[in-house]
Design a protein around this nucleic acid. Structure first.
Lengths: 201, 201
DNA sequence: ACCTGAACACCGTTCAAGT
DNA sequence: ACCTGAACACCGTTCAAGT
């Protein structure tokens, strides 16, 4: 009997998640068999099941990766003096780093999230985390007078996240490549939505 | 050899789509077997395949139903004199008629749409149709001075649809029942986004 | 044309057996 | 502990046969 090897565990898990993600993007969740993932990851079914207890568990791993990535971008929001500028920089960072693979994988994962109650709870927690973080930054900018107080900080945060999500979904539907094109109108929309002292015309 | 019976065809198709929708909402697309749909619709596999050529073809039928429902709501936008009022009435009609079943089914269907190229093309066309219809109404209201011209009519239409979609997705994630709660902030957000002469504070 | 149900190739998952 | 691959129950789809 050997002892648990945490390093190997992490490496293998990462390999499996990456291989599975590639398969899901190429063929979709439905049409990807465990055998496909095994081939892509270079291991047998038994080994794969040693690291992930089910196909759904692999999705859970991908969801957690997305949550971490979102939190990383949002965490940079608070240390800028100008909220709108910080938000725009975050959007540009997002537009610069997000790939078509990420977008398709996200859509792929989204349906599975609603389907499985455990995933749904985790996704809800991740969304609340993002909303609260954004709301805190907005509340601060409202207090300083930079942002309008028409919407509460929480309501505004939900609108911002909803708007960005809706834009990302559309970018995915209409070829992900035109995300850059949508950035400028999105910025203008966010300004109108949030900023105090609206641009006239 | 009998001749084709269009009435029967329509009835049976509707039965199958409804039964399949129920199954998808209850157990998800993955975990619904054709046998499940057959049981729910009260027919044998052979019969089901006589009306729909594949499981994906059933999804296509559901997508078409969603497109028609969206277009019905949007078609009422043009005959009102006040755009914002018409938009709000459309939103209330949406909030009043859409059920948790619709929302979950929509999410279920969305992933499948990205997966299958034929579905993706159709969904894109449906989205363009909605955007163009909305953009035409916005352009008119911009011309009359009711709406601001900061965003082009098309850009504004995309933002409106994105915002609503993002809200609907969140309502689905956080129990669909709280859609009503989100209506008021959504209206305020849309006003700030679109209307000329912003509310101060 | 419309319908049945057995049959086909394949799926996610398990498990006895190896190192 | 880590890994293999055969085996199990089940899946989407087809098709010969009936009316």
């Amino acid at each position: 009997m050997r002892t648990r090897d945490d390093d190997l565990n992490k490496t293998r898990s990462a390999t499996i998640l990456s291989a599975a993600g590639d398969c899901f993007v190429r063929n979709g969740f439905h049409s990807t068999s465990m055998k496909d993932i095994c081939s892509a990851a270079g291991m047998s079914p038994g080994t794969l099941y040693h690291y992930f207890r089910s196909k759904a568990d692999i999705i859970a791993g991908i969801v957690e990766g997305e949550r971490a990535a979102t939190q990383l971008i949002l965490s940079r929001l608070t240390d800028a003096p100008d909220f709108m500028q910080a938000l725009f920089m975050a959007l540009e960072a997002l537009a610069g780093s997000i790939t078509e693979r990420d977008l398709i994988l996200h859509a792929e994962v989204s349906a599975e999230v609603l389907r499985r109650p455990e995933l749904r709870v985790r996704a809800r927690a991740a969304d609340d985390e993002a909303r609260d973080w954004l709301a805190a930054a907005i509340a601060e900018a409202q207090a300083s007078g930079e942002l309008a107080r028409v919407l509460s900080a929480h309501e505004a945060a939900v609108c911002v996240l909803a708007l960005i999500d809706g834009m990302l979904w559309r970018a995915t539907l209409h070829e992900a490549s035109d995300l850059g094109e949508r950035l400028e109108p999105l910025k203008q929309a966010l300004t109108r939505l949030l900023a105090e002292g609206q641009v006239p015309r």
